[in-house]
């Protein structure tokens, strides 16, 4: 019997292989979608932005997108692409989370006085 705490931690981390093996959700739809891996990753990122997913979901999606050859501009571009559809409020709430997943803490940057280290 797997430890329920471990299960919850793995879910919170958005551990895709775990989700695949335990929940049988068949996340790996790259082949079926007939999209190239990068487009596939960006589409999934766009969808998670639309449903206001948790930060670790953004992060996991971004890691996949980067490994598939996307660059940071394309990742931020995805947020802009979905903006008219999902509405400004979603975009505003997603931006700092997306930034954090890219290693940039918007909240801290807004707090910082100019001249402090970046």
């Amino acid at each position: 019997m797997a430890d329920y705490k471990e299960t919850l931690r793995r879910l919170a981390l958005s551990d895709e292989s775990f989700v695949d093996s335990v929940l049988g959700m068949g996340h790996d739809t790259v082949d079926a979608s007939r999209l190239d891996p990068k487009t596939h990753a960006l589409v999934r990122l766009g969808a998670s932005l639309a449903i206001d997913a948790a930060p670790s979901s953004y992060q996991a999606n971004i890691e996949v997108a980067l490994a598939a050859g996307a660059n940071i501009d394309e990742i931020v571009g995805t947020l802009i692409a979905v903006a008219p559809t999902v509405g400004l409020a979603r975009v505003v709430s997603a931006a700092p989370e997306l930034a954090l997943a890219l290693g940039y803490d918007v909240d801290a940057a807004l707090e910082r006085r100019s001249g402090d280290a970046e």
Binding site: L13, D15, G103, Y104
Partner: peptide, 23 residues
Amino acid sequence: LYVSRHTVKSHAMAVYRKLNVSS
């Protein structure tokens, strides 16, 4: 490390995921 705690947490979670561990 001169970064915010949010950044540390975000990096740590990425490390866990990439190493396929949960602690």
